[in-house]
Design a protein around this nucleic acid. Structure first.
Length: 571
DNA sequence: ACTGGTAACTAAACGCTGAT
DNA sequence: ATCAGCGTTTAGTTACCAGT
């Protein structure tokens, strides 16, 4: 960790260096802002870095505001040459840098003034001495008492002010723990083991309150840290050392991948869990223990937890924590993470040859019995979702929340689905907002009718209900799709609904030979693009007309790659 | 349908270096 | 002093899976 966030040292001199938010990269024309703080003194660097960083954030906000009136802003930008544009924006940051230095000089002047005031006060004291010669002894004592009283009050006031400053911004202002911590930090007193809380105490009293994460992330933190406490025996924070962490990792390496899925895991001993992992590995013929990614994640969380505790309680140093957690090598047999598969065309043919598309014996409302053979073909969400994913590349939740008005036609009549986060809809990231033309094959199946048959404000698949912790429309479907594949003996690990998106992206790129930028525009960014391309393409998105996108998506021809469309058209 | 997990995925921060 | 490139680390969110 550097002395201050967003700084780096070069030849002894501190610099501010911070990242440009990805949405502003195309506007600013670079990925990072870098300005010298023109000092080698850590304290000065800290002061300047804090203020300059604040201003830089202001500039980012300002640019975002301008970007709201996008057309105007783009027109202005277009009128400028790229070098002019970058220079203009660079000037903003230079101004900010200069302003911070001025601010510092201003502070210097103020300090000078205060010093002068103190000097004046001293002289008053001298004056008091002179007075002593002409004033009675009693009177003088009274005066001195008053003076001492005032000085004492001032000192108290300053102390309180400092305490308040230190506590400000902390989520636990007013809590005794924090005051004690702040005081001991000010006095430089390390906290000893007897006074530090245990892992679980700090987790519930402070950590979860300070973090204030989204619900699901909060749940993850509590689970990770609770497991750590369970394995290591919930000791006091100051009593942990590297050996504890190494042992903890050794235990993680032997835990079953299915940890916690069965309620019995809760009461089982660590030894029981080892035995369970060993049994599962035996059966699978390979290690069924936690993967390297997951173990790394656990360790990372615990380290973050200790660092937060250190800032609150000052019981150790940041270096000591690094030493405790860094450079831990995992054992040989720890499995590495696996990538999701894409659906081969033969597997898709098998999928569409199952009852949902060929005839099911279930009733319309029995979504869990669709695997039973029969005469009914229900063209509901369960029929449409895999097909739609295959021809649009959209994520499950993006499809599940489609409304009547999300099918739009442009001026020349091209119809596309608009994926966005308005109203009750949600998208994964801002970059997921996009327009995807409806492929002619999809339209041929009657996809457009889904929208036309609904009224404004209605979802096209009203049978999907928000379920689960995150109240997702695709939540139940996701598990049903897995169950269905198992019943139909099509189940393969890592080949799931999301793999259909993979299939779309891979097919577009490698079979239809559509360029990576266009595919990214259609998919709403995907992970496989190098970063520089990602920055570049944001700029180009605006240039993609629907007509051009439609032309590209039409190059996708699953039939040519071996998909039997007859299976779907059978209805 | 719910719950307690893992894994995939992402943005931002950081460390370091070479070029100008 | 600046700036960009790029791999690594950190911190967080979302998607999915297993067992009941």
């Amino acid at each position: 960790m550097p002395v201050v966030q967003h700084t780096l040292r070069r030849g002894g001199i501190y610099h501010l260096r911070c990242r440009v938010p990805s949405d502003l990269v195309p506007v600013i024309g670079r990925g990072e802002i870098h300005r010298s703080l023109a000092t080698a003194c850590p304290r000065k660097a800290k002061w300047r870095a804090h203020r300059l960083y604040g201003r830089v954030l202001d500039i980012f906000e300002g640019l975002r505001g301008m970007a709201d009136t996008k057309e105007e802003w783009l027109a202005q930008l277009a009128a400028m040459s790229p070098s002019d544009r970058e220079a203009a924006i660079g000037d903003l940051f230079d101004l900010a840098t200069a302003a911070v230095r001025e601010m510092e000089q201003e502070q210097g002047r103020r300090e000078k003034a205060e010093k002068a005031a103190r000097e004046l006060g001293k002289q008053c004291g001298v004056l008091l001495g002179h007075l002593a010669e002409t004033v009675s002894e009693d009177r003088l004592k009274q005066l001195e008492q008053v003076r001492d009283g005032v000085v004492g009050l001032q000192r108290d006031r300053d102390d309180l002010q400092r305490q308040k400053d230190e506590l400000e911004g902390s989520a636990i202002v007013g809590q005794g723990e924090a005051i004690v911590a702040a005081l001991s930090r000010r006095l430089g007193l390390p906290r000893h083991s007897a006074t530090t809380p245990t892992v679980m105490q700090f987790l519930t009293d402070t950590y979860t309150k300070e973090k204030r994460l989204a619900d699901d992330s909060q749940r993850h933190i509590v689970n990770f840290i609770s497991l750590f406490a369970r394995i290591t025996g919930d000791k006091r924070l100051a009593d942990y050392g590297r050996t504890d962490i190494l042992n903890y990792v050794l235990i993680l390496e032997r835990l079953p991948r299915s940890l916690g899925k069965s309620p019995s895991d809760k009461s089982a001993s660590i030894e029981d869990l080892f035995a369970k992992a060993a049994r599962m590995s035996e059966k699978a013929g390979g290690p069924m223990t936690l993967s390297a990614t997951t173990i790394g994640k656990h360790v990372q969380h615990v380290k973050g937890f200790f660092n937060t505790a250190r800032r609150h309680l000052n019981f150790t140093t940041s270096d000591a924590i690094d030493e405790m957690f860094d450079g831990i090598k995992l054992s040989k047999g720890v499995p590495s993470a696996q990538k999701r598969k894409s659906w081969p065309m033969e597997q898709l043919n098998l999928l569409f040859a199952t009852p949902i598309w060929q005839g099911t014996g279930s009733r319309p409302e029995d979504f869990t019995k669709r695997h039973k053979e029969g005469d009914h073909i229900y063209r509901d969400a369960y029929w449409w979702l895999p097909i739609t994913a295959l021809w649009t590349g959209a994520r499950l939740e993006e499809l599940a929340q489609l409304h009547h008005e999300d099918l739009v036609a442009d001026s020349s009549g091209f119809r596309f689905i608009h994926i966005h986060g308005e109203g009750e809809r949600r998208v994964k990231t801002a970059n997921s907002i996009r327009r995807v033309p409806v492929h002619s094959v999809l339209a041929g199946f009657g996809f457009l009718d889904l929208f036309d048959h609904k009224k404004a404000g209605q979802r096209i698949w009203p049978e999907l209900r928000p379920t689960g912790r995150m109240k997702k429309l695709g939540d139940t479907y996701s598990t049903h799709f897995t169950d269905y594949r198992r019943h139909c003996e099509l189940y393969e690990p890592l080949m799931d609904f999301h793999s259909l998106r993979r299939t779309f992206i891979t097919s577009m790129r490698t079979r239809a030979n559509v360029d990576a930028l266009t595919v990214a525009a259609l998919a709403g960014h995907d992970e496989e693009l190098p970063i520089f391309e990602r920055a570049q393409q944001t700029n180009d998105y605006t240039d993609y007309g629907i007509a051009a996108l439609a032309e590209q998506i039409e190059r996708l021809d699953y039939a040519a790659y071996g998909l039997d469309l007859g299976l779907i058209e059978k209805t």
